[in-house]
Amino acid sequence: MLASDDDILREAQSWRETGRAVAVATVVSTWGSAPRPVGSHLVIDGEGLFLGSVSGGCVEGDVVAEAIDVIADGAPRLLEFGVADATAWRAGLSCGGHIRVLVERLD
């Protein structure tokens, strides 16, 4: 049920322990037909390598870009994506859902 996300958090720990810069992105709320449930993770390293998903693939690019900034300044960010968002055409959810994603640096 939760195996893949659990593996992702284990991987995040091992990335950090081997000295890589790491950000963890987590779906904190969804509205409408969001593709990934609350609690889903995407982990990103300083090189932009990532594992897991917070959507069906539609917003991962933007989350990874934000994660690079979070890794740089250490301040967590709460991102919103959805059809009502101004960025919808660029990074919207084709399914018509709305999600919020917390991105934080692993310190």
């Binding site: 958090l9 284990r10 720990q13 322990e17 963890v24 692993l106």
Partner: peptide, 10 residues
């Protein structure tokens, strides 16, 4: 997120 917290979760 603190690494120690993540280690505890795991």
């Amino acid at each position: 997120m603190r690494l120690a917290d993540l280690a505890l979760l795991n």
